[in-house]
Design a protein around this nucleic acid. Structure first.
Length: 356
DNA sequence: ATGATTTGACCATT
DNA sequence: AATGGTCAAATCAT
């Protein structure tokens, strides 16, 4: 156990070192990469040991895990929380600035996440392959009877509760390289969670989000986020519907989800640092909401006129992200302008996503 | 007070 | 009938 902790702490230390050095090596991707590798290695080693210690019996009840398993999972979670706590401390300190710098300099033009678009069918195929059938292990703390003897519904059922409408754009988002890997991915839009569900044959629950501005702008955009069974550090995000709300409200910029993901990803990291507090999801939107000029010419960007989403083929976007994000005019060389090359995003328009 | 999240219940789809 | 998606009351956070 001590070994594990020392591994973790070592990882933290390495990360700190990296942080300190970052300004110096910002343009040495290889060096940074090597550092990251070391950090990751350290944490992975810790994780492996944790798993080895607790994981040997992963019983495969079909629906509900035996108490023992639940306990095991619970312990694991506690470990994870301890790890998280360490990381939080580090992350909280001042990484934010550093990260924005990294993102600015390093991630531009790269697409570390593989965006796959598949129809629902394909998606289903993959998930059945991937999520093998040893379901069960959900870490559900006891559900308390909530005594909401509510039955005054059953009349307002006019919404099409379509199951998995055809056009899902599915994104697999690996855990952030930096810091906490438990954080749900973000994509720059602001979402409101409206549900969570245990999914059969999946270890982890699926979370349901809708656009925060659904009611304001009738924005139909939705997404579902679920951790992969195989690889809990990877999230599968399925998008349904397109944003009809205007960009300044929810979108980080005109970048489609795929390319904004890389930026968002990092920000998520910072923003979700406090994982234990489950309800702090949406500050992110705030900075994004603030002031994101796009397109190099339109500064005022009349929101309602701008087509913010999809089809920005070779556009370079200038966004004042870092500034807006942390409004930290301090040392982080206010990189007022960095551009994303939202090049190879081939989101074929599937506008026929109507429900109403 | 307002807005977001949690979570059991409800209901459409398979 | 089972499963997944959504609703909405209760709760939490700001």
């Amino acid at each position: 156990m001590e070994e594990i902790f020392s591994l973790i702490l070592n990882g933290c230390k390495l990360a700190k070192d990296l942080e300190a050095n970052l300004p110096n090596i910002a343009n040495q991707p290889e060096t940074i990469s090597r550092s990251c590798d070391e950090i990751i290695k350290s944490f992975c080693a810790a994780k492996e040991r944790l798993n080895a210690a607790h994981h040997h019996q992963a019983p495969a009840a079909l629906f509900y895990p035996p108490a023992a398993a639940a306990e095991t999972l619970f312990h694991e979670q506690q470990q994870q929380q301890i790890i998280d706590a360490s990381l939080q401390e580090w992350l909280r300190s001042s990484v934010t600035q550093t990260m924005s710098l990294i993102q600015t300099q390093h991630f531009v033009g790269r697409t570390p996440f593989d965006i796959g678009e598949m129809g629902a069918n394909e998606m289903e195929g993959t998930s059945t392959t991937r999520l093998r059938s040893f379901g069960g292990g959900h870490h559900h703390h006891n559900v308390q009877p909530m005594d909401v003897s509510d039955s005054s519904r059953a009349s307002s059922s006019s919404q099409p509760r379509h199951r998995r409408s055809g056009n899902a754009r599915t994104t697999t988002v690996p855990a952030p390289q930096i810091g906490n890997t438990e954080i749900p991915p973000e994509d720059g839009y602001t979402w409101r969670k409206y549900g969570q569900k245990e999914i059969l044959n999946s270890k982890y629950p699926r979370s349901y989000y809708r656009c925060t501005h659904q009611k304001l702008y009738k924005c139909p955009a939705k997404k579902q986020v679920q951790r992969l069974d195989d690889d809990p550090s990877t999230f599968e995000v399925a998008y349904y519907g397109d944003h009809t709300c205007h960009m300044s409200a929810t979108a980080p910029s005109m970048v489609p989800a795929s390319s904004s993901a890389e930026i968002t990803q990092g920000m998520t990291t910072q923003q979700r640092v406090t994982v234990q507090q489950p309800s702090s999801t949406s500050n992110i939107g705030r900075w994004l909401t603030m002031d994101v000029a796009a397109g190099g010419s339109s500064t005022g960007a009349g929101p309602s006129t701008v087509r913010y989403e999809r089809e920005v083929p070779g556009d370079y976007l200038v966004a004042n992200m870092a500034d807006a994000m942390f409004n930290s005019g301090s040392s982080s060389s206010n990189s007022m302008e960095f551009l994303f090359s939202s090049s190879n995003v081939e989101e074929k328009g599937h506008p026929e996503d109507k429900k109403e």
